[in-house]
Design a protein around this nucleic acid. Structure first.
Length: 555
RNA sequence: GCGGGUGUAGUGUAGUGGUUAGCACAGGGGCUUCCCAAGCCUCUAACUCGGGUUCAAAUCCCGGCACCCGCACCA
C-alpha cells in the first residue's frame, strides 16, 4: 500500500503519530503507541536474536549524552558543523569552505571573520545565477547540551551509537579473552538535527538505531559466522560502477565486486533478516556508495535499500570503518585501543640496561642504597649518566649490559566493519509491505508474521452473554498466563471484531461459542486465509507458540 | 532553509462571510443464538494556533506551527 494508507491506519489504530501534537507539534519527532511499541519491540527482538543469539555477538548500552572530546576524536564536531551560505536571489545553498576552496585550495577555516574576509576578497557569487550570497550561518547537525551546573561541560546527544562501542574496546577485548574477531551490538537512540525532516518515520531527528561493530585482525578479515549457509543466497547489487546485477554472495566475492568477506557476509545476513521479519524479498537491493558520498570515517559502504511508495529508502548501511575510530580515540585519549598480536616468530631487539652493583652502592650511599639500587634497576637506558639527588651516580655503582629483548607480540589496531540499522525505517517498510486490502470487503489487513505481530491472538465470545463472555475471559487469562500476548474484544458483531484484529496484524482469532460450553473446543481463525478450524482449548497455546517459534530466524 | 499547496470529530470528507457546522465510517450504550466491518434504536465527538478586517470569519488578510509536493540538505 501507499504512504498515506499507512499513515491513516497508524493514526487511527494508535501505532504511531507526530509527537507533541497538543502543543502544535515539532517536526522530526514521533510517538509510538500501544500497537507500535509492541511491533517495534518485536522487530528489535528478532534483530537481537540474529546478532546476539545466532551470530554470538554481545550487547552494550551506553549513554545518549556524549562529552565533546569523544566526538572531537571521532570527527563529528568538525564534520557535523558546516557554515552554509544562501544565494539571496535564487536560494541555492552552499558550504562556504568548499566554495572558497574552489578558488583558494590552501584555505583553512581559522575563524568566522577570516572566512567572511576571504569570501569578500575572492568576490564569491552564486554559482548558478551570480546572485549575492548571504552571511554564513553555522549549522550543527548534532544537538548540543551542557552537563553539570554553571558553565557546564559541553556535550552532545550522540549522532550514532557506535562511539559508545569503540571507546569500550578494551573491556570487550578482555571479555572475549583477547581473541579477534568479535562483534558488539547496541540498540538505542541516535539524534541528528536534520535541516528538513520529511516523510514521517523516514527522516527523524530522534531515531532508533541498531548498530553492530565487528572488530577484526586487519590481516584476517573473515567473519566466522555461517558463510557456507548464506553464500548461495542471491542479492541485487548496485556497485558504484553503474551496474545492477543479481548475483550469488559467493560469486560477488569471486568477481571482486565485494572485496572483503565480512561485507559480503553481512549483506547476505541483512537480507535474510529483512526477509525473515517480513520485508518483501523483491524490494531489497544493496547499493555501493560513490567515493564522494562516503562518510568521513569510511572507506567503503554498501547501503541496503528497500523499495517503498516513497522510493528506495536506506534501511541499513554496511560500512568499512577500517581503523579510523580506534586510531582516533587512541590518539586523543592516550589509551592505546589495540590488541597484542602474537608474532609468528619472536623478534629480538638489542638493548642496553643498567646493572646496579650492590656493594659499591652501599659504600657510597649508606642507608639510602636501596633507593639508588632500585632506581638504576628500573631506569631505561639512555646516553646520559644516571642522576640521583641532582648528582651523577658514580660509574662504579653499575655496569651497562647489552642484552637481547624478546618481543612476542605487536600492537595492532583492529579493523572495523559496521552494519548499522535504522529501526524506524525498517518498521515503516514492514507496515507498507504487509498492508493490503481484503478484496471482498475492502478493509485493511496488516499481514505481519506471527513473531512480529503486536498480539499473537485475539479472544472473542461469540456474544457477550450466556456465560460465553465469562468462558472467553477464562481462556484469555489462560493464554496470557502461558506467556502469549493476547487481547480480548467483546464489542460489536463478530465480523467487526475480526476486522479490528486484522487491521493491527493479529494472526489468530479464537471464538468461544455455545459448543465451547459443551466440549471445551473453540474455533481458531487464520488471518491470512480467514479459514477456521475447531481445536481444544488445551491446544491453543501450543499451536500459537509453534507458529511464532517457526518464524524466528535460525541459520 | 527556499518556492508552491493543504489544515473541519478518532479517520475520510461537505461546507466561499450570517448553517443548531452536514455526511460516512469508526467509537460508547442497548436490542437481536450474531462466525467475517450485518440490522435497528441511541449517545459521544471537530473548524491547527495567534492576530487583523467586518455588525458578523471555518470561510477574507497577516503571522506562527504542522503536513504534502518540488529544490537544497541528509556526516
Amino acid at each position: 500500500m501507499e504512504y498515506q494508507d499507512v499513515i491513516e491506519l497508524a493514526k487511527r489504530r494508535a501505532i504511531f503519530w507526530p509527537a507533541f501534537d497538543i502543543y502544535g507539534g515539532l517536526s522530526g519527532f514521533f510517538d509510538y503507541g500501544p500497537v507500535g511499541v509492541l511491533i517495534k519491540d518485536n522487530i528489535i527482538n528478532s534483530w537481537k536474536n540474529v546478532f546476539i543469539n545466532v551470530e554470538g555477538m554481545v550487547p552494550i548500552d551506553s549513554p545518549n549524552i556524549t562529552p565533546e572530546e569523544v566526538l572531537d576524536a571521532s570527527g563529528h564536531t568538525k564534520v557535523f558543523t558546516d557554515y552554509i551560505t544562501y544565494c539571496e536571489n535564487c536560494g541555492e545553498a552552499y558550504r562556504v569552505d568548499e566554495l572558497i576552496k574552489m578558488k583558494d585550495p590552501t584555505f583553512e577555516l581559522k575563524s568566522y571573520d577570516y572566512m567572511v574576509q576571504r569570501m569578500q576578497e575572492l568576490d564569491l557569487k552564486c554559482e548558478k545565477c551570480g546572485g549575492k550570497l548571504s552571511k554564513p550561518e553555522k549549522f550543527n547537525l548534532m544537538l548540543p547540551t551542557k552537563v553539570g551546573p554553571g558553565k557546564g561541560k559541553q556535550a552532545y546527544l550522540r549522532p550514532e551509537t557506535a562511539q559508545g562501542i569503540f571507546i569500550n574496546f578494551l573491556t570487550y577485548l578482555r571479555y572475549f579473552r583477547d581473541t579477534l574477531p568479535f562483534g558488539v551490538v547496541q540498540v538505542g537512540k541516535g539524534f541528528r538535527n536534520e535541516i528538513a525532516p520529511r516523510q514521517g518515520l523516514i527522516r527523524l531527528r530522534e531515531f532508533n538505531m541498531a548498530e553492530v561493530e565487528v572488530f577484526f585482525d586487519p590481516e584476517s578479515l573473515i567473519w566466522p559466522g555461517h558463510y557456507n549457509e548464506i553464500f548461495n543466497d542471491e542479492v541485487l547489487l548496485l556497485p558504484n560502477d553503474g551496474r545492477e546485477i543479481r548475483i550469488k554472495i559467493s560469486e560477488s566475492m569471486e568477481n571482486k565486486i565485494i572485496k572483503i568477506q565480512p561485507i559480503a557476509y553481512f549483506i547476505g545476513l541483512v537480507q535474510r533478516f529483512l526477509i525473515n521479519i517480513g520485508v518483501d524479498k523483491n524490494k531489497i537491493r544493496f547499493r555501493q556508495h560513490y567515493p564522494e558520498e562516503l562518510a568521513h570515517y569510511s572507506k567503503d559502504c554498501w547501503d541496503c535499500e528497500v523499495k517503498t511508495s516513497l522510493g528506495w529508502i536506506e534501511v541499513t548501511g554496511i560500512a568499512d570503518r577500517n581503523q579510523y575510530d580506534l586510531k582516533q580515540h587512541s590518539e586523543k585519549s592516550g589509551v592505546l585501543l589495540v590488541f597484542k598480536k602474537k608474532l609468528d616468530k619472536p623478534k629480538y631487539i638489542t638493548r642496553k640496561r643498567y646493572v646496579p652493583i650492590e656493594n659499591e652502592i652501599k659504600n657510597i650511599y649508606g642507608k639510602e642504597w636501596k633507593a639508588v639500587f632500585e632506581m638504576l634497576k628500573n631506569l631505561e637506558y639512555n646516553d646520559k649518566k644516571p642522576i640521583y639527588r641532582n648528582k651523577e651516580i658514580d660509574e662504579n655503582c653499575y655496569r651497562i649490559e647489552i642484552y637481547q629483548e624478546e618481543i612476542k607480540t605487536e600492537d595492532v589496531i583492529p579493523w572495523v566493519i559496521e552494519p548499522s540499522f535504522g529501526i524506524d525505517r525498517i518498521f515503516y517498510s514492514l507496515l507498507e509491505h504487509n498492508l493490503y486490502r481484503r478484496e471482498e470487503s475492502g478493509y485493511k489487513v496488516l499481514g505481519l508474521k506471527p513473531h512480529i505481530a503486536p498480539f499473537k491472538v485475539a479472544v472473542f465470545p461469540l456474544m457477550p452473554k450466556d456465560n460465553l463472555d465469562l468462558k472467553a475471559l477464562e481462556i484469555y487469562r489462560m493464554l496470557k498466563n502461558s506467556g502469549i500476548t493476547a487481547y480480548y474484544d467483546d464489542s460489536g458483531s463478530i465480523g467487526r471484531r475480526y476486522a479490528r484484529a486484522d487491521e493491527i496484524g493479529v494472526p489468530f482469532c479464537i471464538t468461544i461459542d455455545y459448543e465451547t460450553l459443551e466440549n471445551d473446543t473453540v474455533t481458531i481463525r487464520d488471518r491470512d486465509t480467514t479459514e477456521q478450524e475447531r481445536i481444544h482449548i488445551n491446544n491453543i497455546a501450543k499451536k500459537i507458540k509453534e507458529s511464532v517459534e517457526k518464524c524466528m530466524m535460525s541459520i
